[in-house]
Amino acid sequence: MNWSDEELIAGCKRKSAKHEEVFFKRYYGYVMGICLSYAKDRDLAQEIVNDSFLKFFSSIKSFEEFQSVKSWLRRITVNTAIDFYRKNKRFQDQLAIEDQVDIFHEVGALSSLAFEDLMRLIHQLPADHRLVFNLYEVEGYSHREIAEKMKITESSSRVYLARAKARLRDLVQFHLKEYAGR
């Protein structure tokens, strides 16, 4: 079906299974892309995708036509990822983070990394650090907003971000050395 977003939303508000299916297929890749930046692996990302669409369809009645579908769906997805993190926090393995070390790195280092390589490096961060990094650097939340969403202090948010960036610098540096050695 080649329905517009407005037609899809109207159909979803009527609980039309066909409209929901088309909406799901149209936005699956978009939502999965967001989830992959928050989840440890593809299976967890898929859980967050499913929960995000369930929340979207269950709250579709409150969607206003003047809103952007993508931004509303993104907000639901990010909040679902945060909820998933909080719900499963006690079961997650935490990596030991070494003391922060200043490392010289090339200005263009990130430009030589492929997107997949960068995502793989980000996924090596502990879950709480990865979540703060994504919320701050990708989504643009303030430390105050992150603290409220994650139920941590603002200073913890700042520390997690600093540690995430330091760890990423280490990982990028190692990756570049490994790449240069090939």
Rank of each mutant, 00 (worst) to 15 (best):
N2K: 15
W3A: 12
W3P: 05
D5T: 08
E7Y: 08
E7A: 14
L8I: 09
L8V: 06
I9K: 07
I9N: 02
K18A: 12
H19K: 09
F24V: 09
K25A: 08
R26Y: 03
Y28V: 08
M32I: 06
I34H: 06
I34E: 01
A39K: 00
A39D: 00
K40F: 10
Q46E: 14
V49G: 00
D51Y: 09
S52M: 01
L54Q: 12
F56I: 00
S58M: 13
I60N: 09
Q67L: 08
K70H: 05
R74L: 07
R74I: 03
I76V: 03
T77S: 14
V78S: 07
V78W: 03
N79M: 09
T80I: 01
I82F: 04
D83V: 13
D83A: 14
Y85R: 09
N88M: 04
R90N: 04
F91V: 06
E98K: 15
D99R: 15
D102G: 10
I103Q: 01
I103A: 06
E106N: 10
G108Y: 07
A109G: 15
S112P: 09
L113P: 08
F115T: 15
F115C: 11
E116G: 05
E116Q: 07
L118W: 07
L118M: 03
L118F: 12
M119K: 03
M119G: 11
L125K: 01
L125G: 04
P126E: 01
P126V: 00
A127G: 02
R130G: 00
E139L: 06
S142R: 04
S142P: 00
H143S: 11
E145G: 01
I146T: 06
M150Q: 08
K151D: 09
S155R: 09
S155A: 14
S157L: 06
A162M: 05
A162D: 02
R167V: 04
R169L: 12
D170A: 14
F174A: 13
L176F: 00
L176G: 10
L176E: 11
E178F: 12
A180S: 13
G181R: 13
R182G: 09
